[in-house]
């Protein structure tokens, strides 16, 4: 039995194909103008890679913002459940998943089955999301992927205090004018981001083990600051943490397929 999970988010879309409890393959793309198009493109890509077609898929679960508009999905599950489930499947001891995506940030607590125990999602503005990191990186004139590594080179990180993104940008420009090193400013940006995430995580309470997913999990700077603030080490995923949502969807798909075809 072959199942698929398809996660259409705000910045990227991912698809995971599984069979008999193991991952066959996965793909990540930047989103297209519509959720439907993103889903189709990412699925086409992964299916082509695996030399499969839509007919080979027994069950597909969609998730993410676009989850309700994907024509080839048999059902949909919230990305909160999927992230929890996917993360716990990869690392069975995981109880808290921190997912920092492009437009939101979630803290998810799961039980030993990978099912939701509690969750919290930010509902304010772009601050504390991947989108704000992108903007800050732009002000700094570096590629988003370099924010993390740069931050490791910092000797005396700046402190970004402003919460509003606009004022934070002004603060960054101020530091640049003062000729502070790009590395120190990058570290400050990551630290400020970690502070925002920590505030959210505190609302749901952390239980170990903890894993970080979503695009921002690739930023080593944010991750290290967050570990320091929470006083805990995060577990490492064997797979790209960005596909965890789609993976969770595929696991749900396998279950639903079994339920529907006893």
């Amino acid at each position: 039995m072959i199942v698929a999970g398809c996660d259409v988010g705000s910045l990227t879309a991912e698809a995971v194909i599984m069979t008999n409890g193991s991952i066959l393959g996965s793909e990540i793309i930047r989103v297209r103008p519509t959720a439907e198009q993103s889903a189709k493109d990412v699925m086409d890509k992964v299916l082509a890679k695996l030399h499969l077609s839509y007919d080979n898929i027994d069950y597909c679960v969609s998730t993410g913002y676009g989850r309700e508009t994907i024509p080839f999905a048999d059902s949909n599950v919230s990305e909160i459940s999927c992230h929890g489930r996917g993360a716990q499947w990869l690392i069975p001891t995981i109880r808290t998943v921190i997912d920092v995506g492009g437009q939101d940030c979630k803290a998810i607590r799961v039980d030993e089955r990978g099912l939701l125990e509690d969750f919290v999602m930010n509902d304010k503005c772009a601050a504390g999301t991947g989108r704000s990191l992108e903007l800050m990186a732009e002000v700094l004139g570096v590629d988003i992927t370099r924010l993390g590594p740069l931050s490791l080179e910092a000797t005396s990180p700046v402190v970004i205090t402003n919460q509003c993104s606009i004022f934070a940008e002004m603060e960054i420009m101020h530091y640049l004018c003062e000729e502070r090193s790009i590395a120190d400013v990058a570290a400050g940006i990551n630290e400020a981001m970690a502070r925002r995430v920590k505030m959210l995580v505190g609302k749901v309470g952390v239980k170990e083990d903890i894993g970080v997913t979503g695009g921002v999990s690739k930023n080593i700077g944010v991750v290290q600051y967050l570990e320091k603030m929470l006083g805990k080490k995060f577990v490492q995923f064997s797979e790209d943490p960005q596909i965890v949502g789609a993976l969770g969807a595929a696991i749900f798909a396998a279950e639903k397929a079994r339920e529907s075809k006893p």
Binding site: T161, N162, Q163, C164, F167, M170, E171
Partner: peptide, 9 residues
């Protein structure tokens, strides 16, 4: 809260 609008602004 000093972080909302900085004094310089």
């Amino acid at each position: 809260d000093s972080r909302i609008t900085p004094m310089s602004v």
